[in-house]
Nucleic acid binder design. Structure first.
Lengths: 209, 209
DNA sequence: TAAAAACTTGACTAGTTGGTCAAATTTAGA
DNA sequence: TCTAAATTTGACCAACTAGTCAAGTTTTTA
């Protein structure tokens, strides 16, 4: 009955699947797919390994589900960039939101990074279809803003890559940033300071002159 | 005699250790430390697993050596940013070089990214000491440029993080970029186009107004 | 040319890992 | 309250993994 799409999940199922996915996110984002073990996921979920396999048929299925959840939460903010909006405000809002997601869900970011760095075997289809078509759509929006003189003439794709790179860096390379900045990176206001710097450089970088 | 610091390495040792480290870079950058196996490294190096262990005492030692080589090649370009130079030219040169390194050595970049994403257990000391002191030094240089009105007032640390994030993104997220851009990313001139866009946005972003 | 040293590898070991099984316990529903 | 269904887990299995060993081969040195 576990995982059956049409049967309503029980209270225990809902609770335990969530525990397992949270644990899986932590273990997979640190050790990668091959390096993670069912035993580590089980320990972190606070149940036996056999119990984990009662709720998910395989290690790969756990990984796949964790990855899917990550990605679903990522498309929406990007898809909300509107051609009807003010370019600088639209991009400011998106960059701010991405930085906030990096601060709040660093493991999700690292899970994604890990998957892409190993060649994205479980996501290639998604990257080539849903993500690509959304990027193409938003690149067209940015190009139109450039054509109207609202933004400086830059390649829209590289602008999008830079926004992703910079914002996700605060999640993916968290360990390095903390090592360099020390306690400063843990203090109140660091996130705002980060946002201010990132927004300033990127938005000034694309402001028409 | 393998790995002894004071004994001169033989021709066969030099050759095979290099083969092993090249293979290791490929396997570790894809599968991570835990996910990689000695068998995979051996296969890619074109020798038996037992022979790999003849040249390196352990899997961890291979990983450590591969990582060390990566990092040594990274400090030098950064350390060459000169307080006596023109700010825009100094940063332009550094960014261009980093993009070139991403294009030429994507596996080294992914190895580093992987290590940091798993908490950098083998590099924390390096990050907190050598890297931090170099970053502090260059941040001071950038701050002086800002004080002299040569650069817009941005936080030097976040500027450095943005440069790293953006340039390393082309190596670390290579798979995603190729999925989105398709053949365009493999064409002649893509690297120049990338450099043009990245330099334009960042350098315009920090140009004094 | 011969011997010592270095190099190479298949077989092996002990521990690990993904997944299965049967049985005990708990929960839900009648 | 009782029974059926769901949940839980220790023991187990087959395959995998890091590393060892002994023996054969190749290279180096005298």
């Amino acid at each position: 009955m576990a995982g059956t799409a049409n049967k309503k999940q029980s209270r225990i199922q809902t609770e335990n699947r969530s525990l397992i996915l949270t644990a899986a996110l932590n273990v997979f984002s640190t050790d990668g797919y091959r390096g993670a073990t069912l035993e580590r996921i089980a320990e972190r979920a606070g149940m036996s390994k056999t119990n984990v396999l009662y709720y998910f048929p395989s290690k790969e299925e756990i990984y796949h589900t964790a990855l899917e959840q990550t990605v679903e939460g990522w498309l929406e903010p990007f898809s909300e960039i509107s051609a009807q909006g003010d370019p600088v405000e639209e991009l400011r809002r998106y960059i701010s939101l991405k930085l906030q997601m990096s601060a709040e869900q660093p493991e999700a970011s690292r899970l994604f990074a890990n998957e892409v760095q190993r060649g994205a075997p479980l996501m290639l289809d998604f990257l080539k279809t849903r993500l690509k078509s959304l990027v193409d759509e938003k690149a067209a929006v940015i190009r139109e803003w450039i054509d109207q003189g609202k933004l400086a003439p830059v390649d829209p794709y590289h602008l999008i890559f830079m926004i992703w790179a910079t914002t996700q860096h605060y999640a993916d390379f968290d360990t390095q940033i903390v090592a360099i900045l020390g306690d400063q990176s843990k203090q109140k206001g660091f996130q705002e300071q980060t946002a201010h710097a990132v927004l300033s450089i990127i938005l000034n970088g694309i402001r028409p002159r």
